[in-house]
């Protein structure tokens, strides 16, 4: 176990290192970083001053090491628009993004769970088909289209929920439904497959033989076993959810990191873009690491590989 842990942690550190390196070369490849890091209105003297301040007159390797050191400390410079530390601006937005991502995560698993049980319990064939088709159809609608569809139906026509912003639980419903249902088809297929494979096992037959009802066998006996694959895949997808928050936050004007990054792009605020991208990538790597470790605990076979 210790070796598995060590290997995974080392891999994660290497990844973060790779991300920083890629960011460094990207900014350099795109041209003079001093120009990128200053507002368009900046004068030639301003550019010279920032060149000296950033050490851009020094050899590339010195610049790289310096960039690496700053990045590790989360220092990407000051926001060009706000004048305060870019990382601080990004960190302010993290709770909103986490709130959205985690709620969507549970909405996704919860819906797959309820619909999966429903599909298992019902004898009505068309209902099962309908659920599968709806989930497949949902998968073919991009996040922003689905978000707007929900706004149109629930905010504009029915006037039940607010169109944008954050604050009450009502604000959270539509964004979480938008993001949480994206992978529903995958979750449902997985959940159904694992329920079906449990169904064939002896312990299920024994439970039925004892005279227990269909629902009780399903909930008490099969469920704990069938849920593991679902939770694992959903955990792996938690990282993808993080990427999806960028678009979802923009649709609903949700004040998270993703929206901040998109706004910073239109304002050409590079320190904030770099800090935001770096932070989400690190969160992504950490989530994947945690899911892997958790899975290693739950299923010992994983550790061998």
């Amino acid at each position: 176990m210790a070796r598995f842990l060590l290997k995974r942690i080392l891999q994660s550190v290497l990844t973060v290192f790779g991300v920083i390196t890629a960011a460094f070369f990207l900014v350099r490849l795109a041209g003079d970083p001093a120009v990128l890091l200053l507002p368009i209105e900046a004068s030639a003297e301003d550019i010279e001053r920032i060149r000296a301040a950033l050490g851009l007159d020094q050899p590339l390797i010195v610049q790289y090491i310096r960039f690496l050191g700053d990045a590790v400390r989360g220092d990407f410079g000051d926001s060009l628009r706000q004048g305060t530390s870019a990382m601080a601006l990004v960190l302010e937005r993290v709770p909103a993004t986490l709130e959205l991502a985690l709620t969507s995560f549970f909405v996704g698993i919860g819906l797959a769970f309820v619909l999966g049980i429903l599909m298992r319990m019902t004898r009505v064939r068309w209902l099962r088909e309908l659920i599968t088709w709806i989930a497949l159809g949902r998968q073919a609608i991009p996040l922003f289209s689905f978000g707007l569809l929900l706004i149109l139906i629930f905010s504009i026509w029915l006037k039940w929920l607010p169109t944008f912003g954050r604050g009450t639980w009502q604000h959270l419903v539509l964004p979480a439904l938008t993001l949480g249902t994206y992978e529903l088809a995958l979750y449902l297929r997985l959940f159904n497959a694992s329920l079906a494979s449990e169904q064939r096992l002896d312990y299920v037959r024994t439970a039925y033989a004892k005279g227990q009802g269909h629902l009780k066998v399903l909930l008490r006996h099969m469920l704990p076993n069938a849920l593991l694959p679902l939770v694992t895949v959903a955990g792996i997808n938690l990282g993808l959810l993080l990427g999806g928050t960028v678009v979802t936050e923009t649709v609903f004007s949700w004040p998270g990191v993703g929206r901040l990054i998109v706004q910073s792009v239109s304002q050409r605020d590079f320190p904030v873009i770099l800090a935001g991208t770096f932070l989400i990538s690190v969160m992504f790597v950490i989530i994947n690491l945690l899911v892997d470790i958790l899975y290693g605990f739950l299923d010992p076979r994983v550790r061998m590989t």
Partner: peptide
């Protein structure tokens, strides 16, 4: 390949388009 999958793709694309 692993490195590339370890960054959300939308984010990578946003950051790169912002620069180039």
């Amino acid at each position: 390949a692993d490195l590339q999958l370890s960054i959300p793709r939308v984010l990578l694309l946003i950051a790169v388009t912002a620069i180039i």
